[in-house]
Design a protein around this nucleic acid. Structure first.
Lengths: 213, 213
DNA sequence: ACCTGAACACCGTTCAAGT
DNA sequence: ACCTGAACACCGTTCAAGT
């Protein structure tokens, strides 16, 4: 994520890049075990500054984690956008599937980050407006795709926002329950995960109700 | 939850009830703000013992929270069972709806407990076999109802476990995203929550795919 | 068997002082 | 403007000692 295109790593962070260095170091620790393994003193040590230096850039530990979460919401949103672009615009159902795949795989690859982003245990979201805005980026994409599907007559009429909410909820549930190992043995291993995603999307499209022929 | 049907509250907890007293005091703190607001010394103080007494009953803070989570899984499972019983056995769709309602409302009423139970941030579930078993109780109920629906020809054929997983994922996603305030403005207030639950169940049954008449 | 109190290590945070 | 180092309060955990 850091951009040092000149090739030479900075000799010292004490020159204005500290904020990003702290985010980077914090991200590594968060990825290993969540907020419990991220202690500010260790973050400072990794960035090569004293333990009180971070307070110049973040009011407290929570604020650092909020900043990291914010970056990760951007990253998730970009992943989803990339997934959509791989599918032609008229393939709305395929796009929903691609989004689901991207979302769940982001979670599987970054379980600790995902937990921190959505647990609500560490960061009081109300206090961080940018964070809250970032967390909404992905939702807008779901709504766009749903709306396009409705225009094309592929998806049922109705409030696109609410349908997007249902779509997201299903995705989110699948992702979180998989990383908490609650879907065992139905979503074990990479193939199991993909099967679960496919079953979910299948069900979302057709419903579980048996149609009388 | 504690049972003191004799009417007289125990004069002191130092007589074998300490374990439950700690769980009870811990539950109160957990409900206020999760593991961050539960400190073991405060728990001990509330139970009227020294700060090292809890270690006689729980190996560490995590073990106490695991025990609380376990009790809450039972409580959630019981709530779901109660919801099912309010609906006649042939009303499979109505039962799924009742389960969804109960699940989401449990979450809305106990957001901090729900976060702790499912975040994976505080307790390493692998280390607590009973906890893991307790977390599976509700799932079995989903599967039962789905299977009955299949027998009655109301629900599509297929692996009932996977379908139950899809059902749970949808429920869980709705519940968690609502308590994290991510469904705003589609699930605000009690009516908003109920609307979201109804839309979810509607969609689960019929699917979002537009059926050609 | 169960609980107490002193003690230790560690962390978040603050603040006066340095460059 | 930005960083340092000492200092404080607080918490999880341990352990020798008490009843």
């Amino acid at each position: 994520m850091r951009r040092h295109e000149d090739g030479q790593r900075p000799k010292s962070y004490h020159h204005g890049d500290l904020r990003n260095a702290l985010i980077q170091a914090g991200l590594e620790l968060l990825s290993e075990g969540g907020a419990a393994t991220l202690d500010l003193r260790k973050v400072a040590r990794r960035a090569g500054v004293s333990h009180s230096a971070p307070y110049r850039h973040f009011t407290d530990k929570q604020a650092l984690i909020a900043a990291i979460n914010e970056e990760e919401y951007y990253r998730l949103s970009e992943r989803i956008q990339a997934a959509r672009r791989e599918v032609p615009d008229d393939g709305v159902i395929a796009q929903l599937h691609a989004i689901a795949h991207a979302y769940v795989h982001f979670a599987v690859e970054n379980p600790w980050l995902m937990r921190e982003m959505f647990s609500g245990l560490t960061v009081r979201r109300e206090a961080f407006a940018d964070l809250h805005a970032a967390s909404k980026l992905a939702f807008k994409q779901y709504e766009e795709v749903i709306r396009r599907g409705q225009e094309q007559g592929i998806i049922v009429e109705g409030f696109s926002g609410a349908l997007a909410g249902v779509f997201w909820s299903l995705l989110h549930g699948v992702a979180m329950l998989i990383i908490e190992d609650q879907m065992h043995p139905y979503a074990d291993g990479p193939e199991g995960v993909d099967l679960m995603v496919r079953t979910s999307m299948q069900t979302l499209y057709n419903g579980i109700g048996r149609k009388i022929l």
